Computed example of a mutant assay.
Amino acid sequence: MIQSMTGFGKHVIQLPSKKITIEIKSLNSKNLDINARIPQAYREKELELRKMIADVLVRGKVDLSLYVEITGEESSAEVNQGVVKKYMQQLSNIAGGDDLKLMELALRMPDTLKTDKNDIDAEEYNAILTALKQALSEISKFRSEEGKVLEQDFLSRLKALNVLLQEVRDMDPERLNTVRERLERAVAELKVDVDANRFEQELIYYLEKYDITEEKVRLDNHLKYFETTLMSKDSNGKKLGFIAQEIGREINTIGSKANYAPMQQLVVQMKDELEKIKEQMLNVL
């Protein structure tokens, strides 16, 4: 079953004094590109968090956001009283004013708050890991649901291509007869004597150049292979992309050999269906 690279997952955990929220968003990308926005206090754990994401999501442009909201009395920041008093004294010497106003101005100055860097609490970090696992589970489910939609679209496009291929098969004898008649008429208009046997040999050689039997067989095989790969248990986006390229080559060759307007119209329709497949392929994991 294929998966989309587009997805979203979110999970929230409430601790006694903190609320931890993890959000993961992903879009399509050729490789895995993780952008992590986490508080400075948790930077030492970033590599571990990235590895957990890489093991699950594999590919795509991924945005990880970790938010920690203090909901209790806990705070790691304290007022640097000595610095604030010094600022107030200097401001008073410059402009005077009441203490409340001076304190308001002083607190806007640099280094008025000091923070103590503490080790990450084990229980808190385990809560973060739990939230991340849940968010990854949600985004994986989202990707699978999107993959089902893509799968149905691909099957619809494949059905249309198979119908068009059958029309090409049915039209091929008529095409060759038309090309043959066109050549015979062109030679007749020259009003010159030609050796019938030699002309027939040249005609057969010329018609062989426009034969599309191999292309029809290969195109049929590629369409079946695409569907088989699509229905496999793994999401093989890159493999499906390669098969789509091979399908395109056979369609292009049929178009270049057709030399027959009605068949070239079918080829245009086939190219249109394939282009829609390729557009959607950009989102497949």
Score class of each variant (00 low, 15 high):
197 N>Y: 07
9 G>F: 01
65 S>M: 14
169 R>Q: 13
67 Y>T: 12
95 A>R: 07
15 L>T: 08
1 M>I: 09
74 E>K: 13
141 K>G: 14
251 I>W: 09
12 V>L: 09
4 S>T: 01
142 F>H: 13
103 M>P: 05
241 G>W: 05
107 L>S: 08
189 E>L: 13
159 K>M: 07
163 V>H: 09
203 L>A: 04
46 E>K: 06
49 L>M: 15
53 I>H: 05
139 I>N: 01
161 L>V: 02
142 F>M: 12
251 I>Y: 10
271 K>I: 03
173 P>K: 01
141 K>C: 12
146 E>N: 12
250 E>T: 02
88 M>P: 04
179 V>H: 03
273 E>D: 07
94 I>H: 03
228 T>F: 08
117 K>N: 14
267 V>R: 05
128 I>F: 01
207 L>Y: 10
151 E>T: 14
3 Q>S: 13
16 P>A: 08
238 K>S: 13
116 D>V: 15
120 I>F: 03
283 N>L: 02
144 S>H: 13
247 I>Q: 11
255 G>K: 03
199 F>P: 00
189 E>Y: 06
108 R>E: 14
46 E>I: 04
63 D>Q: 13
45 K>M: 08
2 I>W: 05
5 M>R: 05
119 D>P: 14
11 H>R: 03
175 R>W: 00
243 I>D: 06
104 E>M: 12
280 Q>D: 04
216 K>A: 07
146 E>A: 11
250 E>H: 09
254 I>R: 00
95 A>I: 11
44 E>Q: 14
227 E>F: 10
98 D>R: 01
164 L>E: 07
205 Y>V: 00
156 S>Q: 14
150 L>N: 08
74 E>D: 13
87 Y>P: 10
148 K>N: 15
10 K>I: 05
66 L>P: 01
187 V>T: 10
61 K>S: 15
193 D>L: 11
263 M>E: 03
24 I>Q: 00
274 L>W: 02
273 E>Y: 04
24 I>C: 00
28 N>M: 02
216 K>G: 01
169 R>C: 08
161 L>R: 01
36 A>I: 04
148 K>D: 14
163 V>W: 00
42 Y>E: 02
207 L>W: 09
64 L>Q: 00
33 D>G: 01
253 T>K: 05
142 F>E: 06
282 L>C: 06
266 L>K: 11
199 F>T: 08
160 A>Q: 14
269 Q>S: 14
170 D>R: 10
237 G>Y: 11
246 E>D: 15
70 I>C: 07
240 L>A: 10
33 D>C: 00
121 D>A: 06
219 L>S: 08
162 N>L: 07
261 A>K: 08
81 Q>H: 14
106 A>M: 09
99 D>R: 12
31 N>M: 08
121 D>N: 15
248 G>Q: 06
181 E>H: 09
155 L>Y: 10
226 F>V: 08
66 L>I: 05
263 M>T: 03
214 E>Y: 02
2 I>M: 04
209 K>D: 10
68 V>A: 08
274 L>A: 02
58 V>K: 15
37 R>I: 12
